[in-house]
Nucleic acid binder design. Sequence first.
DNA 1: GCGACAG
DNA 2: ATCTTGTCGC
Length: 241
Amino acid sequence: MNLASFKNLHPWKISNEEAKELQKKLAGELKFTVLGKLPRLIAGVDSSFIQSGEEEYIITVIVVLSFPELEMVEKKFLTNKVSFPYVPTLLTFREGPSFIKTWKRLNHEPEIVFFDGQGIAHPRQLGMAAHLGLWIDRPTIGVAKSKLFGIEEQTPVKKGEWHPLLHPEDRHVIGATVCTKETSAPLYISQGNYITLEDSIRLVLSCVNKQRLPEPTRLAHLLTEKVKKEKKTLDLQDSEE
DNA sequence: GCGACAG
DNA sequence: ATCTTGTCGC
């Protein structure tokens, strides 16, 4: 059983100010390289939460799909207690610890990972996908359903159409709004680590079927809902599959 | 001071 | 993210 590798870069339980300083420092370590060859395994990550009295639990799901077939190769989930609250721009500190624990249990090594959140389209250029891309040291993409940071000057309306997301200060490109389904709101795509924006958009689009979300993200989300439903029916004990 | 604000 | 019924559209 090969466990997915990662680098333990820093502790997670730090103050908000320390977290922001850490983001500024880590952002300088990102690499935006062109993808060498197409991946054979792509992972999708998603989390959901359960409130139980004073305690809050996070259910993190990672699904691994074959590419380009997009068939399920592995599913893994963990339930953990969470203490870090949701703070805009510090999402990684809330979901990161649980992601890493789940990642360690994977029996496959995905070559690319899709996260539900931003890549570098973040005030300090280190959204969750970029941050965790440094931890797992491989290509990652931010697939967000809404905007956190940036200026959009046009809305894509045809499937496959996209427009750059610009930095508010110098207007350089930090991501893109991508139409993955007509009549649906666009997705906010931005590169995480070891990938370019163009490759990110290309990969996300090649993982889209008939729905708005690309399969890795969509299937991880469905599983997260399923696990939560079963969890609520029983009790709240740490568990795994 | 005011609005924005991933999940 | 979560709380929530029916309802409109592909």
